[in-house]
Amino acid sequence: MLCDKCKQNNATFHSTVNVNGQVTETHLCENCAKGNKLFSFNEFLNPALSPFGFFDSYEEPTCDSCGFTLSDFRETGLLGCAECYKTFNSIIKQSLQKIQPSLTHVGKKLNDQTGLSDSEKQIKKLEVELKNAVNEENYELASEIKKKIIALKEANNE
């Protein structure tokens, strides 16, 4: 195949660029590839700078919230954060399929406060809010929450 630019030498640099679904193929000889200025050898090594997207397919799946990569997971067998379960979803499910009887959680649910009445749950929630308010030294809010808790407790005792 001849070089697209000089149409004399054999093309040894091939690239495929996909711009909004429009696929363009470029074939250049070594000389034209260098002289072209479109990409220098350094750019060629740095995928971020390559205008042709040579390395797109090599980009590793990486978790946006914690920076963990797929190879981090493969090396350690551990994930970097809860969001990694979404980032690496399909790979995790493949490995879960081998060891788990099913892929759907059927056990205890989060905040499954069985045994507590609605108002008891409400009191628990308020007590946490109260602690946070005190920690933040927001005593006005704290005393308001305290009043609500007392009212709820009195109502419970009736």
Binding site: G77, L78, I92, Q100, H105
Partner: peptide
Amino acid sequence: DDELGFLTACPTNVG
């Protein structure tokens, strides 16, 4: 996670 349950560092403990 509603589907996977409690999320753990190692997927062998998830759920």
